[in-house]
């Protein structure tokens, strides 16, 4: 007899439950909160949306000198509104994509489909983070460029210094910005790596069957 068939014989006939749950026990269970991975992912994506929106907008509301500096640097009053409009449009697109992919997650799909849909949602969040990191990197560089070009204090410093100093400073700033972005990216990878480790492992196992 096959080993599993022996188990099957008892599995079918045996009442595994040693603690019978009554209807009275079930009612309170319906009110408890889920601790599923989708819920955690949902909270993280909301936190990320809010975080990056705050990072982009808070300085505009709370710092007059920051606003003044921006106006001085970008001068004409056209660049800033266009950038703001574009960044809000991108946020809206991401909110829509996230909403759509969360709606697509259904516990009654097959195991593989469910995993794929969760990973798809995680991808949307990933792209949102990549977009923000690229924007952070670019805006830091552009900020440095305009500061060098338009800030009178910085201008004086570099006029007095040797010509090589400027290039060295620029390289250091680029490296520093790149490092900053890289550290944030690694932090994200770590968080999602831990959160989705089991899911990724199981998804790979299912995919392996298709090869």
């Amino acid at each position: 007899m096959d080993e599993l068939d022996l188990l099957k014989k008892h599995w079918q006939s045996d009442g595994v439950e040693d603690k019978h749950i009554t209807t009275k026990d079930i009612y309170p269970m319906l009110l408890k909160k889920s601790s599923s991975i989708v819920k955690t992912l949902f909270y993280i994506s909301i936190a990320e949306l809010i975080f990056w929106i705050l990072v982009n907008t808070l300085p505009l509301f709370f710092s007059d000198s920051y606003n003044q500096k921006l106006n001085e640097m970008y001068g004409d009053g056209i660049v800033m509104p266009i950038l703001a409009f574009l960044s809000y449009a991108v946020i809206l697109v991401f909110v829509y994509l996230l909403f759509k992919s969360y709606k697509g997650i259904s516990v009654t799909d097959s195991a593989k489909k469910l995993m794929e849909n969760i990973l798809k949602t995680r991808k949307v969040i990933k792209y949102y983070v990549i977009y923000n990191l690229i924007m952070a990197f670019l805006s830091m560089l552009v900020g440095f460029y305009y500061a060098f070009k338009n800030d009178p204090n910085i201008k004086t410093v570099f006029q007095d210094a040797e010509s090589g100093t400027f290039i060295v400073t620029a390289i250091v700033l680029i490296l520093f910005t790149g490092l900053f972005v890289l550290v944030i990216w690694l932090f994200y990878r770590l968080i999602y790596g831990i959160l989705l480790r089991r899911l990724n492992r199981n998804y790979k196992e299912l995919k392996k069957l298709e090869v």
Binding site: L7, W11, S110, K112, R198
Partner: peptide, 26 residues
Amino acid sequence: NDIEKALVFLYLEDKNYKEISETMGI
């Protein structure tokens, strides 16, 4: 592992391969 346990579970529950494949998505 998790996937293997799922297959064993469905097998023990006397599900046929069609049902097993539909549940797992393979």
